Computed example of a mutant assay.
Amino acid sequence: MKHTVLIFDSGVGGLSILQEVRQLLPNLKLSYLMDNAAFPYGIQPDDILLRRIVNVCRSAVEVLQPDLLIIACNTASTIALPALREQLAIPVVGVVPAIKLAANSAHGGHIGLLATPATINRTYTDDLITQFASGCTVHRFGSSELVLLAEEFMLGHDVDRAVIDHIGKWIDSTPTMTHIVLGCTHFPLLTPLLQTQWPKIQWTDSGTAIARRVKQLLPVTADDTQSGDLQLSWTAANQMPSAAENFLSQMGSIAHAAPLLVKEFSYT
């Protein structure tokens, strides 16, 4: 029996994590869940987000019965990971900005952190920098606009000029950064554009590390070589996520696509 992994985000950003998991572990059954009814997360209060994330994820786990849950959103991970691990009987993997990875390669130089304003300003992020990048100079840039541009990009819109203009001033006005951490899972979707425009910068994200962690938690049997099914769920019943559907269909046929009914759970 194939293992099933549920990958959760508010929008299309978690597809960057799904892509890495699919590449490393093509045998897994992958189910992508978008809370598009509450998108975007980065501008909402933490207490509201905590209840929302727990309700959505518990509803999905109850219906889809996955073996593992990935919270493929930095904001959601920093807010809800402890609560989800306490309430769910399956492993829950979160994402954090790949500050340690960038700092280990930067050798005391200048690195950038490109994330949502919520992630940029969290104490959790301060602690990551203190623990893993104290020898580097870390330049932060918080952007909610880049999240929306990534969503537009996934819909097939031309956002190249807007992306370049949006972060170009920050890059140009900052001491030369050898690495920039993409601290929102939406941002790696723009990596081809970023690499083309700024080829000397190493654009770093946590997707590969998350895929390796899944491999540790869900070892594959030798005879399990057939590609796993793909599924798609979303919370805005009247808003079919066409960008996610198109992205997934490039990896294979989508076995199931349907809206998710979110239940209210009581928890402390």
Rank of each mutant, 00 (worst) to 15 (best):
1 M>Q: 14
1 M>I: 13
9 D>M: 07
13 G>I: 02
13 G>P: 02
14 G>K: 00
15 L>N: 02
15 L>I: 04
15 L>T: 02
17 I>C: 04
19 Q>N: 14
21 V>F: 01
23 Q>S: 15
25 L>D: 00
28 L>A: 00
30 L>D: 01
31 S>I: 12
31 S>E: 11
32 Y>V: 09
33 L>A: 02
33 L>F: 03
34 M>Q: 10
34 M>T: 02
35 D>Q: 13
36 N>Y: 07
37 A>Y: 04
39 F>L: 15
40 P>K: 08
46 D>N: 14
48 I>C: 12
54 V>E: 01
55 N>L: 10
56 V>H: 02
59 S>L: 05
60 A>M: 07
61 V>A: 15
64 L>Y: 05
66 P>E: 06
66 P>G: 06
74 N>R: 04
76 A>S: 14
78 T>C: 08
82 P>Q: 11
82 P>H: 12
83 A>M: 15
85 R>D: 12
88 L>S: 05
92 V>H: 03
92 V>D: 04
98 A>W: 02
99 I>E: 01
100 K>A: 03
101 L>Y: 12
103 A>P: 02
103 A>V: 06
105 S>C: 11
105 S>F: 09
112 G>M: 00
112 G>A: 03
119 T>K: 03
120 I>T: 11
122 R>Q: 12
124 Y>S: 07
124 Y>E: 06
128 L>C: 05
128 L>F: 04
130 T>P: 01
131 Q>T: 11
138 V>E: 00
138 V>Q: 00
138 V>H: 00
138 V>I: 09
139 H>P: 06
146 L>T: 06
150 A>M: 15
152 E>Q: 14
152 E>T: 08
154 M>A: 05
157 H>Y: 12
158 D>C: 13
162 A>V: 11
163 V>T: 10
168 G>F: 08
172 D>W: 11
173 S>R: 15
174 T>I: 12
176 T>Q: 09
177 M>E: 10
177 M>S: 07
180 I>A: 05
181 V>I: 14
182 L>N: 11
183 G>C: 01
184 C>M: 12
186 H>D: 06
189 L>S: 05
190 L>I: 09
193 L>E: 08
195 Q>T: 15
195 Q>L: 13
200 K>V: 13
203 W>N: 04
204 T>R: 08
208 T>K: 15
214 V>T: 09
215 K>C: 14
215 K>Q: 15
219 P>N: 06
220 V>N: 07
226 Q>F: 08
229 D>V: 11
238 N>L: 09
241 P>R: 05
242 S>K: 13
242 S>D: 11
242 S>V: 13
244 A>T: 03
246 N>W: 10
248 L>W: 05
250 Q>L: 13
250 Q>T: 14
257 A>E: 03
260 L>D: 04
264 E>P: 06
267 Y>I: 10
